[in-house]
Design a protein around this nucleic acid. Structure first.
Length: 432
RNA sequence: GCCCGGGUGGUGUAGCGGCCUAUCAUUGAGCCCUGUCGAGGCUCGGACUCGGGUUCAAAUCCCGACCUGGGCGCCA
C-alpha cells in the first residue's frame, strides 16, 4: 500500500473534468460541516481548497467516524475519487476511500484560520505560523515574492548584476541612524544599516550596474507603524550616469512592480483596487514643497527636513507617487553630489503616506568626499576602507535604496508595516 | 524619548461602582439533521493582566508594575 502523499495533487490542479479519477490530496483540515447524513471536510493546501464529501450511508463506517473526529487544522492525506458536482465550491468534490492523519492538531486553536473572527496583529504575530494559513496573510507573502521577482526581472533585463555585501561591519557608518553592536571575536562590530558604502565601492571595481536585495538593521527605538529594526532594502548603484537616470529607472521599476501585482489573481483576497501609476512621476523641488506646505499653513524653514505631518500634508496635496528633488546638502548624507545654491543632486520618492526611497548622484571626487565627511562631523580615518576606492579611478555614479516593506505596505494599503514581514523585529519583538 | 488610548473565556467583544452567579459571536466537548460553502438547531465547558489602595460593596474608581494600540520625535 503506497502513501497517498506520493501522488499528491493540489486543490487547484483538480477540476470537474477529472471526474472519476482517483486522486490524492494532502493539507490542513480547514473546516468541517456535519449535516448528519452528509459530511463535508474542507482540505486546504497552497493551491486552494478541496471539498471532501462523505455520504453516511455510502461510506465505510470506520472511515466516516475517523474523518468526523479529526481535529481542525490537522494535517491529513486523503485518497479518493473525483466527482463532478455543481453544488460543490469548485465544481468538484472528492469521495474519499482512505485518510491518513499525518499530524493531529491540538485544540483549541490560537487563531481562527477561516476569517470568521478577527485577531489583533499582536496575537497574529505570536502565532504567525498559523496566521500565515489564513488567505489574506498567505497572499500578502505570495505578492511579496512576486514583487521581489519583478524587481529582479526588471533589473536583470537592464544588465544589472546582483551582488551581496557584508552585514557585519566595523564602526564606520554614514551617520544618522543608530547601529546594533555585536561581538565579533575579540572586537566590537555592528550590523550594517545599509549597503551604501559597499555598493559605491563596487563602482570603482567596474561592475557598472549592481543591485542588492538584503536586510538592513537600524537600532532606532522608534515604535511606529512604518519602522522596523530589521528591514529589507532594495539598493542599486549605476556608474557613468547621474541622478536623473536613476530616478527614471526607479519610477519605471515601481510602475512595473505595480503592474505585475495588479495581474496577480490572489490580489482579490486583499480586497483592494490597485491602480498602476503612470510614469513619469511628478517631480517637485524641495523649494516647491516648502511653498506648497506654506500655502497649506505649514511653515518649514529652509534646510529643515519634513516632519511627519508635513509629509502627510504634501501627500494629500499631491495625491500620487512623486519625487522631491534638489534637497539642501545639510539634510542629505555626505555622499550626495552638491549642486548650486546649497542644494545637492538628491531625491526622495514619496508615496502620499510616506517616503519609499531616497537616492542621489554621488560624490566621486576623493577630495570632495573627504571634505564632506569631515563637514558632517565624521572622521575620515574611519572611512579609509571606503575612501580608498575613490583614489584609484572612480567613475561618476548614482543610485538609490528602496524599502521593500514600505513599498509593499503602501501598494497593498496595509496599515502596519509588520504585516508584510514574516517575523518582524521591532522595539519589543524578538520572538518568534 | 514624549503625548493619548486599551488590557474581560483560545479568538474577537459587551459591561465601566451594587441588577455580574459577567453579554454576544466564534472556537472546544456532545447531540439532532442528506448538499453545506461564515450551514442550522439544542446541551455543556471556558475569562475580569498582576500587586497595592479607596469603599458597606470593585471587572468598573485611584496608584504602581507588566503587556499592548495609536500619534509625535528620532530615523529610512
Amino acid at each position: 500500500m503506497t502513501s497517498p502523499i506520493q501522488n499528491r495533487k493540489y486543490a487547484n490542479e483538480i477540476t470537474a473534468a477529472n471526474e472519476g479519477e482517483r486522486v490524492s490530496i494532502a493539507g490542513w483540515v480547514h473546516e468541517k460541516r456535519d449535516l448528519g447524513g452528509v459530511f463535508f471536510l474542507v482540505v486546504r493546501d497552497i493551491g486552494g481548497f478541496a471539498q471532501v464529501t462523505l455520504i453516511r450511508k455510502k461510506t465505510d463506517k470506520e472511515l466516516f467516524e475517523r474523518v468526523k473526529r479529526v481535529p481542525r487544522e490537522s494535517v491529513v492525506a486523503i485518497e479518493g475519487k473525483v466527482k463532478s458536482e455543481q453544488k460543490a465550491p469548485n465544481g468538484y468534490e472528492i469521495v474519499p476511500e482512505r485518510m491518513e492523519v499525518l499530524s493531529e492538531a491540538s485544540q483549541v486553536l490560537p487563531l481562527d484560520t477561516t476569517g470568521k473572527v478577527g485577531a489583533e496583529l499582536d496575537t497574529r504575530l505570536d502565532a504567525r505560523f498559523m496566521d500565515l494559513r489564513t488567505e489574506r496573510t498567505k497572499h500578502i507573502f505570495i505578492i511579496r515574492s512576486h514583487v521581489l521577482k519583478a524587481i529582479r526581472d526588471f533589473l536583470d533585463e537592464r544588465g544589472f548584476i546582483e551582488l551581496n555585501t557584508p552585514k557585519i561591519v566595523s564602526a564606520a557608518t554614514e551617520g544618522g541612524t543608530a547601529l546594533f553592536p555585536i561581538s565579533y571575536f575579540e572586537r566590537e562590530a555592528f550590523l550594517n544599516q545599509s549597503p551604501q558604502l559597499y555598493k559605491q565601492m563596487l563602482m570603482a571595481s567596474g561592475f557598472d550596474r549592481v543591485y542588492e536585495i538584503a536586510p538592513i538593521f537600524r537600532a532606532e527605538e522608534h515604535d511606529t507603524t512604518k519602522h522596523l529594526n530589521e528591514a529589507t532594502s532594495i539598493d542599486i548603484e549605476v556608474a557613468f550616469v547621474d541622478h536623473e537616470y536613476v530616478m527614471t529607472l526607479l519610477e519605471e521599476l515601481v510602475a512595473f512592480v505595480y503592474s505585475k501585482v495588479a495581474d496577480y489573481p490572489g490580489l482579490a483576497k486583499l480586497n483592494l483596487n490597485l491602480e498602476v501609476p503612470k510614469t513619469p512621476f511628478r517631480r517637485i523641488t524641495y523649494d516647491e514643497a516648502i511653498e506648497l506646505l506654506s500655502g497649506a499653513g505649514e511653515e518649514i524653514e529652509w534646510g529643515e527636513d519634513f516632519s511627519t505631518s508635513a509629509e502627510h500634508t504634501l501627500g494629500k496635496i499631491i495625491g500620487e507617487l512623486y519625487f522631491i528633488t534638489d534637497w539642501p546638502c545639510a539634510i542629505k548624507p555626505f555622499y550626495a553630489q552638491p549642486a548650486a545654491g546649497g542644494t545637492c543632486n538628491a531625491f526622495d520618492l514619496m508615496h502620499p503616506r510616506l517616503e519609499l526611497s531616497s537616492g542621489s548622484q554621488r560624490v566621486h571626487s576623493y577630495e570632495l568626499l573627504e571634505k564632506n565627511i569631515e563637514l558632517k562631523g565624521l572622521s575620515a580615518d574611519s572611512f579609509e576602507f571606503y575612501l580608498d576606492a575613490f583614489r584609484y579611478g572612480m567613475p561618476p555614479h548614482a543610485g538609490w535604496g528602496l524599502g521593500a516593506e514600505r513599498l509593499l505596505m503602501c501598494m497593498l494599503e496595509i496599515g502596519n508595516i509588520r504585516e508584510v514581514v514574516l517575523f518582524p523585529r521591532d522595539r519589543r519583538r524578538l520572538v518568534p
